[in-house]
């Protein structure tokens, strides 16, 4: 049975709660790993694992049909951000081949109140988002690359997340089975 859409409202959490929890997670990881690059990698992995599970919930909630091209996929990602984070990124900067686009965020609930200290400029604070997109799309047989082009935390006007289509994953029979 698919989950009822109305159930989401009852579980709404305060966005500041999310901001502070995520902030505590990132700073604790920084203290544990003592290296921003490792933290980036871990955050991306957390996001990836979340995305792999979230896609199931997303499909159940929206009963979205299969996407035939990247433009549809982009709309779905936009819709997912609205459902899960209540923010609406704008889709722009399509590449001529239509296989690469940007999600532009005016605001990011994860980075509210946050100011990066000057010695952490290589930290990708919101790496969990890019990991999430990669994980979710991988579960629907799309391999993508996802990275930050601009970040409000680093003084840019907007946060821009670039998504690039790599290839379609073919279903293969696991080794050892006929």
């Amino acid at each position: 049975m698919s989950r009822q859409a109305s159930r989401l409202d009852a579980k709404k959490v305060n966005s500041e709660f999310l901001t502070l929890t995520y902030g505590a997670l990132v700073t604790q990881m920084l203290r544990d790993f003592e290296n921003a690059e490792d933290v980036n990698k871990q955050l991306e992995r957390i996001g990836y694992n979340m995305g792999m599970r979230l896609i199931e919930d997303f499909l159940a909630r929206t009963s979205a049909p299969r996407c035939l091209e990247m433009r549809e996929t982009a709309d779905r990602i936009q819709q997912a951000f609205r459902i899960y984070l209540n923010i609406q990124p704008t889709i722009s900067n399509w590449s001529p081949a239509s296989d690469e686009f940007s999600l532009v965020f005016d605001s990011n609930p994860l980075t509210e109140f946050v100011e990066l200290p000057p010695d952490l400029t290589n930290l990708r604070y919101s790496a969990i988002l890019s990991g999430c997109i990669r994980g979710a799309l991988e579960m629907v047989q799309l391999e993508v690359q996802c990275w930050f082009v601009q970040d409000q935390l680093k003084g840019d006007n907007v946060t821009e997340l670039r998504v690039k289509f790599v290839r379609r994953l073919e279903e293969v029979i696991p080794a050892g089975e006929d």
């Binding site: 502070l20 902030g23 505590a24 990132v26 109140f113 946050v114």
Partner: peptide, 8 residues
């Protein structure tokens, strides 16, 4: 606001 910053 400043004390809400996770890095402070």
């Amino acid at each position: 606001k400043n004390s809400m910053n996770a890095f402070y």
